[in-house]
Amino acid sequence: MKTRLEAMRTEVTSGDVSVNQRYVTARRGMKELRGIFDNMEKMADRMNARKYQFTKDADTERLLGSKMGLGTLDVAGEFRKNIPVPDLSTVTWKNEADINVITPQDQGTCIITGLALLSPGPFLLTDQGNSCAKLVDATTRAVTSRLELPVQPWDVCALPGDQAAVTLPDKSMIQLLSTKEGQLSRGKEIKVSSGCYCITYYNNRLYVSYVSNPRIEVMTLDGLITSNIQTVDGRQAFQLPLYLTVSASTPPTLYVSDCTTHNVHQLSLDGKILREYSDMKLKYPKYVVAVGPGQLLVCGPQRDAADGEGRQDGGNTGE
C-alpha cells in the first residue's frame, strides 16, 4: 500500500507532466485510495495475535522417559586393524569344499553367470540354465531361497537395504530383488536398452555393460541415465565389454573386462581410460573382482594352449 501511495504522489507532483495529465492521474488515484482504505480496514483482523497451547504426545513422552531411549548399542565384534592385503602373485591358493547349488526344482543344467556377496554373509547367484536366482548360505553350504525369473538372467550385484539387481538381457530389463529375511522376491523393474549384460553398483549408481553398440551406461536406481562411456579420444572404447566392478580405492576407479580384445580396462568414473591390463596366458577375460590396492582377480574360460593347459570351460557345473 505504501508503494502504491508513493507512486501516485510522484505522478501528481511531477513537473514533467501537463495539468491535464495530473488531473487524470488524480481521478484514477481516488479509486486506488478507496481500495487502499478497504485493505487497511481488513488489516486489523490480520494482525490479531493468537494464543497457542502445546499438547505432548503421550507415546513420545513415554519413549523419552524410557531408560533405553531409542534402543541400545551393544558390542557386536571388533574391527581388525591393519589387515594385511595378500600379494596375489605369491599367495598360495587352497581349494576348499565345493558348494552344490543344484536344487530339486532345477530342470536344466545349472549355469552360473553372476555372483554377488551380500552383507553380512550369504551370496546371491544367477542360474542362467534354470532362469532363476538363488540365495546361498556360505556357512551351511545350502541354497536357502530360489526365485524363478521370467527369462534367463545374466549378472547380479548387491544393493543397499537388502536389495539386489539382476540383468535380464532377453527382456532388456534390470530386475530389482528383495533379499529381506533371507527370502528372494521380485521388486521394481528398470527398462533399459537391448544388449545389457553385466552390472555393478557404487555410490547410488548402477554401471551397466552393453555388448550391442558396446558401451557402459551409468544410471540411477530409477533408471535415469546420468552418463555414457562409449568413446575415448574419439575412438571406440570397447569391443565386447562384459563384467565390471568399481574399486574402493582413492579415487575410485572402474574395471571392465573387454572379452574379445583380451584386455581389462581401468577407467576413471568420468570415463577416461587410465590403464589396460592383458596377459598372454589369459584369454577372453570375464569376471573381475577388486581385492586390494592395485590388485584384481580376473577369471576367464580359456588359457593359452602354449601354457600347457589347453582350453578350460568354466561356469557350467553348478559348483
Results as ranks from 00 to 15, higher is better:
Asn213Tyr: 13
Asp155Cys: 05
Thr245Leu: 10
Leu221Asn: 09
Ser278Met: 06
Lys283Asn: 11
Tyr197Phe: 10
Arg205Phe: 03
Arg205Met: 14
Ser185Phe: 11
Tyr277Arg: 00
Leu240Lys: 13
Pro241Asn: 10
Arg146Gln: 10
Ser278Gly: 07
Val288Ser: 00
Thr231Leu: 04
Leu168Phe: 06
Ser268Cys: 01
Asp233Pro: 02
Leu184Lys: 09
Leu282Asp: 00
Lys272Pro: 00
Glu148His: 06
Val151Ala: 13
Phe238Gln: 02
Val151Ser: 12
Ala248Gln: 13
Pro153Lys: 07
Glu189Cys: 08
Leu242Trp: 01
Leu269Cys: 00
Cys157Phe: 07
Arg146Val: 14
Val246Gly: 01
Val211His: 08
Asn263Met: 14
Tyr201Pro: 04
Thr200Met: 08
Ser249His: 06
Gln163Leu: 15
Ser194Trp: 04
Val288His: 01
Tyr210Leu: 03
Lys272Trp: 00
Tyr243Leu: 00
Ile190Thr: 06
Pro214Met: 06
Val192Tyr: 03
Thr261Pro: 00
Pro251Ser: 06
Gly187Asp: 12
Thr226Tyr: 09
Val208Leu: 15
Val264Asp: 05
Cys157Tyr: 02
Tyr243Ile: 00
Leu147Thr: 09
Ala164His: 05
Glu189Arg: 13
Ala237Pro: 01
Ser268Gln: 07
Leu221Ala: 10
Thr200Glu: 05
Ser212Met: 09
Thr261Lys: 11
Thr253Glu: 10
Arg205Leu: 13
Tyr284Leu: 15
Val289Ile: 11
Thr200Cys: 15
Asp162Glu: 14
Asn228Ile: 14
Ile174Thr: 12
Leu184Gly: 11
Gly182Tyr: 14
Pro169Arg: 14
Leu184Asn: 05
Pro169Ala: 04
Asp279Leu: 03
Gln152Val: 08
Leu184Arg: 08
Gln163Thr: 14
Leu206Ile: 06
Thr179Leu: 01
Ser145Gln: 05
